[in-house]
Design a protein around this nucleic acid. Structure first.
Length: 115
DNA sequence: GCATTGACGAAGG
DNA sequence: CCCTTCGCCAATG
């Protein structure tokens, strides 16, 4: 596959940040976007995740949800239940496609990694 | 090349 | 509290 220079760079950047998310923690698309400096372009983060399938070192996309803690991207996984299962393995409980105690598991790259 | 869409988010009604 | 609009930008039709 061939992306434009900018997107390719952006994608790799997003993947790198997602891989830095500690186990049992989650973050939001907007937080990643802000950390990367793209700010409001949170959609591009989601778009990047869409290309994360089959990427080599595995990208824990299941640790990335929207700002409401909703598993909006679960439909894009191999199976509709895979995302919930992966989160559950990391002691993150999910109810009705929403992460319980989302703020408790929230991991902000800007806050944790520093800006 | 214009219109629509999207794993988002904030603001307005 | 729910719904709509706007911004953002790449991909797709």
């Amino acid at each position: 596959m061939q992306y434009t220079a900018m997107t390719n760079d952006f994608f790799q950047n997003v993947f790198d940040v997602v891989r830095l998310i500690p186990k049992g923690r989650v973050t939001s698309y907007g937080a990643i976007a802000k950390y990367l400096g793209t700010g409001r372009s949170s959609r591009m983060v989601g778009w990047a995740m869409n290309a994360s399938h089959g990427v080599k070192p595995k990208v824990p996309a299941h640790r990335v949800v929207n700002r409401n803690g909703m598993l909006t991207g679960k439909a894009h996984f191999a199976t509709p239940t895979l995302m919930e299962e992966l989160l559950l393995k990391e002691k993150i409980k999910v109810k009705n496609e929403i992460i319980i105690d989302f703020e408790k598991h929230y991991w902000d790259p800007i806050k944790e990694l520093g800006f």
